[in-house]
Write a protein that binds this DNA or RNA. Sequence first.
DNA 1: ATCTATTCCTGGCTGC
DNA 2: TGCAGCCAGGAATAGA
Length: 269
Amino acid sequence: MPELPEVETIARGLREKVLGRRIASVQVWGALVIRSDRKRFATDLQGQTVQALYRHGKFLFLTLQPSSLVLKIHLGMTGQLLFEAPSMTPLKHTHIGFRLTGLAEELRYRDIRRFGFLKILKKIDSKLGPDAWDSSDEVIFETLRKKSGMLKNTLLNQGVIAGLGNIYVDESLYRTGLHPRKTLESLRPDKLRELCVSIRAVLSESLQAKGTTISDYRDINGQSGGFDQRLRVYGKEGTPCRVCGGKIRKILAAGRGTHFCSRCQRAPR
DNA sequence: ATCTATTCCTGGCTGC
DNA sequence: TGCAGCCAGGAATAGA
């Protein structure tokens, strides 16, 4: 499932390929992933040049000229952006194809579970908090300092900090020795600082490995990520903690499978 | 303000 | 081997 490092990896690859190119045509095989006016989708995009590509949290924003419209993309759980030869029969669950001028391959959006979506907007919208990677440590620290609630809930909330998903929240909390059900307001400033450092370290390491491959994540070249081997708690329930030998457990928190070390990460109260 | 439950969806896994 | 049932979860939304 693509979280910040995976989406950033995709964004970097995409920029190289699509910036400055004009969208020659748009093929729609499955319109259900389009969350704006479906009738207008292809015609709005055709003839537009991709001026810039931004990532904010797990969202991608492609700004288009001359219309100034914005194509907003979220990959959900299983969304993939792939470059394939137009002659190649689209893989099952491929929904949209973009032909770009001067590019032999076609950019295709594939999404098995269809939790992802594409949307055309008049301008970049943002209900998101500061990006977990692009913002300074100070901004992340100050943002979290003003918040309350359970760590797992708050860190997953994209309106607070944008980009963290289930995997990286669990991994960050593990590294800081914090139980996912602890509250933000119960943390001393130095511990919160430590959490911020852990978040950045996990993201940095995963980005270097080009992300984690869980489910169907692939970058634009169809490559999977390499961070899987560095996961310490996510998907490791029942195995011993590498630090203390305690048992890694899995509970439900914030409606998500939540992994932690029963010894390193003490439950509140 | 914060939290939980629900909806969307399909492939993979479990158990019989 | 087949198949039913369950599980995974990001975002949006309703309701507590």
